Amino acid sequence: MPSLDKSLVAGLPMFAGFPASDLDEILREAQPIRYPKGTAVFQQDEEAQSFFILLHGHLRVIKVTSDGQQVVVRFVTPGEIFGIAMAMGCATYPATALAIVDSIALVWPAVVWPRLVAKHPSLAVNTLQTMGGRLQDAHTRVVEISTEQVEKRVAHALLRLARQAGRQVEQGVQIDFPISRQDIAEMTGTTLHTVSRILSSWEEQGLVTGGRQRITVRDPHKLFLLAES
Rank of each mutant, 00 (worst) to 15 (best):
R160V: 10
S201E: 09
S103K: 12
V101R: 02
R115Y: 09
P109H: 09
H120Y: 12
F15K: 11
G79W: 01
A10R: 01
F42G: 01
I179A: 06
M86H: 08
H58N: 14
I198N: 15
L199S: 10
G133Y: 00
T39Y: 09
V61N: 05
F224E: 14
M1D: 14
Q174L: 11
A110R: 09
K37V: 02
A48T: 05
T140V: 05
F15W: 08
P13R: 08
S66H: 08
D176F: 06
R60Q: 03
L135T: 04
P94Y: 07
M88S: 15
P121G: 01
P94K: 05
H56E: 14
Q205Y: 15
E80N: 14
A95N: 11
K63L: 06
E170N: 03
L55F: 07
T130G: 01
E47P: 10
T39P: 00
P13W: 06
P36K: 09
K222V: 04
I179Y: 05
T147F: 12
G57A: 06
Q136P: 00
L59I: 00
V169W: 10
P121Y: 11
I175Q: 04
F51A: 05
F52C: 14
G211I: 14
V169R: 02
M14K: 01
F52H: 05
F177S: 07
S146L: 12
S229W: 03
H221A: 03
V217P: 01
A162R: 07
R167C: 06
A91T: 14
V41N: 09
E80D: 11
R74K: 13
P78T: 10
F177Y: 00
L199T: 04
K37A: 11
R134S: 00
P178I: 00
R181C: 04
E170Y: 03
Q129R: 08
G79D: 13
A99H: 09
Q31M: 15
S50V: 06
P19R: 10
P13A: 14
P78Y: 08
V150I: 08
S196K: 10
Q43D: 02
G68N: 06
Q164I: 15
A91L: 08
A91E: 15
D5N: 08
C90M: 11
R74Y: 00
V142G: 03
Q171T: 07
T147N: 13
L223C: 01
L158I: 12
A16Q: 15
S122P: 03
F42D: 03
D5E: 07
I145Y: 05
S200C: 09
I104N: 14
Q129N: 07
R218P: 02
A85P: 04
A105K: 04
Q49L: 12
V73D: 14
V111P: 02
W202H: 12
E203W: 08
R153T: 12
F82Q: 02
K37I: 08
A16N: 11
